[in-house]
Design a protein around this nucleic acid. Structure first.
Lengths: 143, 143
DNA sequence: TCTTAAATATGATTTTTATCATATTATTAT
DNA sequence: ATAATAATATGATAAAAATCATATTTAAGA
């Protein structure tokens, strides 16, 4: 369902949500290490996220990546859309183009409701909310 | 969530459930064409399924693949277990080893219930039941 | 304005997944 | 028995995803 890249991206964004802001930017190497993802790899992902305005960045000395309040207000699903693309998230489990509610594929009825719920949750939960879960100890991001 | 191979495997097994039995075996080329999967590729998958007793086969003239009643009584998830392995189905969405109910990862609470439901459904729905949905017109397998 | 520190852009390599090809073994029918 | 037919086993190739490397651009501070 999620690619490796997407998972890394979520971890990175969450890390930034917890540890950065406009006045406290973090550079790649200080992100890659704690989240345990190869530096060059996460760098590439961060750039994609930055280009898509999911996260913010400035270059040069004292530069780095961070999340603005606007960034934090975005739903989790935006991260996944940028990295994996909409299609991967919503396409039929059997990859049948012609599968839809009217003409459901055999697995459709088994999976569809749960899948829809997952997507809804990803759509309504913001980065900020997610990071607050971690702060409150409702969930854990082992770093 | 599911690999390409798993999707192909489900399609093939379903095709066999609908069109084969002990007295009517089907050979690879007559499976690969209608389900629209490369012959050599599906052949390999069918062999794995056969070895794992998900499907049956006999070789030589008049041979081919088919589903016995025992085969049909198996849950869908068995197909996926053989092709993708248990781990792919059940592992944490962020691939964090240490994620569990006691120490859920941030995405855990968002996704876990739906995921559990999906797995339950795949565990209790049999191949036979699924193929009967198709026969009754409750779902469609475009071939 | 010049040096340094950071992201950015681009592309190369490696690994995994998907796809293709061929030789071997088992079964049926002649 | 033997020829023909079909699965089986094994391995080679191709495509995609993940990982690594390097040169370029931008911003800060001396």
């Amino acid at each position: 369902m999620l690619s490796n890249s997407s998972k890394y991206a979520v971890k990175a964004v969450l890390f930034l949500a917890l540890h950065s802001n406009e006045d406290c930017k973090i550079m790649v190497k200080d992100i890659s290490e704690p989240i345990n993802v190869p530096q060059a790899y996460i760098a590439k992902l961060l750039q994609e996220l930055s280009r898509a305005n999911i996260i913010s960045s400035t270059r040069g000395p004292k530069g780095g990546f961070y999340l603005s309040e606007t960034n934090k207000a975005q739903p989790i699903i935006n991260i996944l859309k940028v990295i994996d693309g909409e299609k991967r998230l919503t396409s039929c489990m059997l990859s049948l183009d012609m599968c839809n509610e009217k003409k459901p594929c055999p697995l459709h009825n088994i999976l569809s409701t749960s899948r829809t719920t997952i997507l809804e949750n990803l759509r309504k939960k913001t980065i900020k909310e997610l990071s607050e879960d971690v702060k409150k100890g409702n969930s854990f991001l082992p770093l």
